[in-house]
Design a protein around this nucleic acid. Sequence first.
DNA 1: CCGTTGAGTGTAAGCGCTTCCACTCGCCGG
DNA 2: CCGGCGAGTGGAAGCGCTTACACTCAACGG
Lengths: 334, 334
Amino acid sequence: MTIYEVAQRAGVSIATVSRALRNTGPVAAGTREKVLRAIQELSFTPSRLGVSLAQGRHAANGIVFPDLSGPYFAEVLLGYEEVASDLGRSVLILSTRGRAAVQDLVRDLAGRVDGMVIFGRTVEDAVVDEIARSRTPLVLLARDPVEWADAVSSENTASAEALTTHLLGHGYSTFALAGDDDRGDVTQRWTGVRRVLSGHGIRPPEPLPCELTVEGGYAAGRTLLGGGAGDGRRPRAVICADDQVALGVILAAEELGLDVPGDVAVTGWDDIMAARHARPALTTVRQPMRLLGARAARALDELIKGTRTVPNSEILPTQLIVRSSCGPHPLEEK
Amino acid sequence: MTIYEVAQRAGVSIATVSRALRNTGPVAAGTREKVLRAIQELSFTPSRLGVSLAQGRHAANGIVFPDLSGPYFAEVLLGYEEVASDLGRSVLILSTRGRAAVQDLVRDLAGRVDGMVIFGRTVEDAVVDEIARSRTPLVLLARDPVEWADAVSSENTASAEALTTHLLGHGYSTFALAGDDDRGDVTQRWTGVRRVLSGHGIRPPEPLPCELTVEGGYAAGRTLLGGGAGDGRRPRAVICADDQVALGVILAAEELGLDVPGDVAVTGWDDIMAARHARPALTTVRQPMRLLGARAARALDELIKGTRTVPNSEILPTQLIVRSSCGPHPLEEK
DNA sequence: CCGTTGAGTGTAAGCGCTTCCACTCGCCGG
DNA sequence: CCGGCGAGTGGAAGCGCTTACACTCAACGG
């Protein structure tokens, strides 16, 4: 089924069929009628490849993320897809989890889309540079903003400060940090935590690196809480890089016979669904995950359309969600 | 950057460049060398559109799912993407959640891929038929198998029977079912439950339709547990269509001052992450979600490659996961 | 009455690749 | 010494569309 057969059946040229189809250029009412009928009868659908090749655009966006097993990326993806689809673009996904040849995959993706979103540190700087230089519109998500590309992320440092201040208000004075900081956004969180602790004369602890999964959190929890259980070296509060780590730490605490929050307070980040249903329910920082994806899609659209050419960096607000995992609320709030 | 410039720089024809690039047909060692150098110097990447148009294939797969906000679809998608990517295919996604023009979106998607996976009842039968007739390879996921298309789903009826039998073993005799049954897989679950209850002389209850979300479950929980709280008409066990509904029911129970599992037992389905961390931890049925996606990708690959032409239907085993939400385990089982 | 205009249409040139086919040219066996 | 063969290469025809450009022709104003 090609445009030629439609043209033949309608008794016109392919140019006219195209014009009737796209409403570009004048077509007599009668002719349009004939063409549309032929299209109907042959149930013709223009080949996307032909269209794209001729138009020089894909009408598709890409997104690169590390994983989809946690709710965080899934939510962002959902917001992204929704907006992209509304803007008439298909969405191609690429997960980098445990993949060796990320570079090649990203390059391939770049050849299939009009622009793409890249999450955090999923892709090496060199490759990002290469993509950017090839004039593929690019939006970086949850990554330290750079001058030459768009960036969308959510506020981290200030909410980390709020969270830490809240914990100090509980009267806690020994802290531990759990979670890798090779992700830019996590680093920002730790920065906020450190600043507040230092400001209160508390020497900030070194973050304990761990994978941002329940299992990673569990391992970290065993390390942090298991060692000096009775000798006072156990932290009174564990601030975790995300909710999954926090859930893992809580599992570890339970196993060690510790009460959360009685013996140790635990906080997360993201406000994933399980945070609300866990017992104790997690104190955490809510990120506007879906909005993050949606904004990235819009930014990318502007870049692709050329509506905007100067790079833009957007930071979305977050919200401290206090639940029971940080302990009963003392009357005096800081 | 086109193949012509590479050819010119290497002093050969585009045919030779193509052959050197794809290793199709003979190329003298020296020539290959020259070509590869030119490619390197110009940092040339073949246009995906050109390749696809000439080869008549997209090297891409599609997947249509209703939502991504729960962990279920995200996990399946993850398994799907992983395998598809390993097979050298990109993945296009389409979420139908709250979208009006699903038909057009699906048609568009069909024009961009070599084959696609469609989840449950996301797409009208008429459109599925149309896609199938257009010879686009198709795999249906978690949907009642049909003769003319591939299907991958996980076992539902038998595990529902196992779950129900287990609950009967607890001594429970009044049941409620929560969850819409317009999804094929949920219907199968209810069938299993009904069969066992009938077999034990218990009249199976009508499922209470609700959205498969925490909110939906909460609403259902209020209805089921709130009404005849004291008059003995409250069910002793609520079997939920999935974990999210179960979590919602538990929230409702808590709010009504009921103890789970003391006053009412609750079970879910899927074994999502929150199921393990919820208190009480959910008794549920584990679906091999990632495997589901992976198998669908492989089935699709066979169809696309033409390795297999007869439709195939695969059913993956599930596993009953007993946790505390169904009550302390009586010594006598079954 | 003729030149101008613009609506309506067709021709053909791409878009960037793959691949069939034809061609050249050493080399081998008869 | 010659026909045949196969390795190596180039020419050119697609793949299915969009669109610049040329063309026809009726209507209109001067």
